[in-house]
């Protein structure tokens, strides 16, 4: 019997370190999947990490002076410059290690920002840092709007979603543009590693962060972070909504490793997008016609992604 109990320990969750680097007591909303994603990311990147954090929810809920939730060192400077600050940290550490002023040590430099700080105002700094090839990880926590300032639309807000600056009005039914494809933009920089992740799939997320930290050169991870407050859904459905985003194909999980695409979960059949929309207040106003339009687009995009996987397959 003891023998079998021992083997139960092999269950994946038990293999993950019990140590926390992003600790409780912070001020995130109930059911904030972003806080969970940050916690998982920190577990994966571990102690040898320096964080550069953009202005936004994470910064506000994790570090009101004189408190901090971070067990690893970090700096917040401004909204749009996280990738530049991270590349500065990387360059600085590299120079002073090379010149023998501090001992040589592998340190993961990780830049973190929201979707606004990444796909809108921070895009230029990010593109510059990726192009220059700094050895750093950049993680975008995408909750699909400017949640910290009160749910305003960003270029990462999905088509049809109602936000405070793309409200579902009598004439215009919410967001009129399609979500900017940040992972593809990052991949177009020909960097060694790009991945999408979601805290509803914790082991997958941690594995990707670990991989990104190990790879030499810039890595980009785009994490869908369900926001119950902004998406208008009950906090207890946060993890469920993340799963539905993946299972409907709205947010596919994949990696682009040295130009090779690989699906993390290959779904034989996508669930209807309506299942994902139904639980969220921000999509409540969608007409059947709009849902169908989105459904078609999701299928097309998923097929496109699968083609990329086929085309870049080894051998």
């Amino acid at each position: 019997m003891d023998k079998y109990l021992d083997r139960l320990g092999i269950y994946a969750a038990r293999l993950v370190s019990q140590k926390e680097y992003f600790v409780p007591g912070h001020r995130a909303c109930q059911g904030c999947a972003e806080a969970l994603a940050v916690r998982l990311m920190s577990k994966a990147s571990r102690t040898n990490t320096v964080i550069a954090c953009a202005t936004g929810c994470i910064e506000i809920f994790s570090s009101p002076f004189p408190l901090t939730s971070w067990m690893v060192p970090g700096i917040h400077v401004a909204f749009e410059n996280t990738a530049a600050v991270a590349s500065g940290i990387e360059s600085g550490l590299k120079a002073i290690m090379r010149k023998g002023r501090i001992p040589l040590k592998k340190i993961n430099v990780v830049g973190i920002a929201g979707d606004g700080g990444t796909s809108d105002i921070g895009l230029q700094a990010l593109s510059g840092a990726l192009e220059r090839g700094h050895n750093m990880v950049y993680v975008c926590f995408d909750n699909e709007a400017y949640m910290n300032t009160g749910i305003q639309r960003s270029s990462s807000t999905p088509f049809g979603a109602s936000t405070t600056t793309s409200p579902a009005g009598k004439v215009v039914p919410g967001q009129t543009t399609w979500k900017k494809n940040m992972p593809e933009i990052a991949a177009a920089h020909d960097i060694p590693y790009v991945a999408t992740a979601c805290p509803s799939y914790p082991f997958d997320l941690m594995e990707k962060v670990r991989k990104a930290a190990e790879i030499e050169g810039p890595a980009y991870i785009h994490i869908l972070s369900v926001c119950p407050t902004g998406w208008r859904l009950p906090p207890e459905l946060s993890i469920h909504a993340g799963r539905l985003a993946v299972e409907t194909g709205v947010f596919p999980l994949y990696e682009v490793e040295r130009g090779r695409y690989k699906l993390s979960i290959d779904l034989p059949e996508l669930r209807p997008v309506q299942e994902y929309f139904r639980i969220q207040g921000r999509f409540r106003h969608l007409t059947e016609e709009m849902v169908n339009k989105i459904q078609r687009r999701v299928r097309e995009e998923y097929e496109k992604l699968k083609k990329k996987v086929m085309m870049t397959r080894e051998g």
Partner: peptide, 17 residues
Amino acid sequence: ESEHSAMSVCVGSSAAG
């Protein structure tokens, strides 16, 4: 890629020592 990033890189590297 910009002066904004120039100062940001200086901030990051100076904070790293």
